[in-house]
């Protein structure tokens, strides 16, 4: 009887045996990444922002706390300093809040557009001011074709944006 060791045959199991290490490594990365995402989501506010009219009234939207606030940039309120610092007023449901940020907002920032500002509400002698670190434009879900014939109508609508709340 021949008792010498047999040569390995390239079977299905032999071919697959190399894969588990890659699969296990990917799974480890997936568990770490998934865990980090859940942790990040749970430690951030589940609701991404507070509306301007909720400051000081809704739980989690307190003065002095790091929060994000949402409102529409009031027409004619945007002022840019030579240093790049920008100030404007945001409004929501008839309640307004002055905002100061140290840099020029990017994206499609302009008057009459909804924005979310990250920062904190400060209280001084003149009232509440939002000291912003970052401005994010919050585009709504409506899309309209750019149409030169409607520019005047659009400008008229934009002029009234701050009155809508």
């Amino acid at each position: 009887m021949d008792l010498s060791p047999r040569e390995a045959v390239p079977t299905a199991q032999g071919r697959k045996r190399k894969r588990p290490w890659l699969a296990i490594s990917v799974l480890a990365v997936v568990f770490v990444a998934g865990g980090l995402m859940v942790a990040k989501f749970l430690t951030s506010a589940v609701d991404y922002y507070c509306n301007v009219d909720e400051i000081g009234t809704k739980s989690g939207c307190d003065v002095g706390r790091n929060i994000r606030i949402q409102g529409t940039v009031q027409a004619g309120s945007v002022e840019k300093a030579s240093s790049g610092a920008t100030s404007f007023i945001i409004e929501y449901h008839g309640v307004s809040m002055p905002v100061q940020v140290g840099s020029e907002p990017s994206g499609i920032f302009k008057e009459c557009i909804p924005v979310v500002v990250r920062g904190r509400v400060a209280q001084d002698a003149t009232g509440k001011v939002f000291e912003g670190d970052e401005v994010i434009v919050k585009h709504d879900n409506s899309y309209d074709a750019e149409n030169k014939d409607r520019v005047e109508q659009a400008n008229a609508e934009a002029a009234q944006c701050s009155q809508k709340g």
Binding site: R19, L22, A23, V26, L27, V30, A33, G34, M37
Partner: peptide, 15 residues
């Protein structure tokens, strides 16, 4: 996205 990458990894575990 990460969940389905994990699903594909599980498919490659062998057996």
């Amino acid at each position: 996205f990460v969940t389905y990458i994990g699903y594909l990894a599980v498919r490659g575990l062998g057996g």
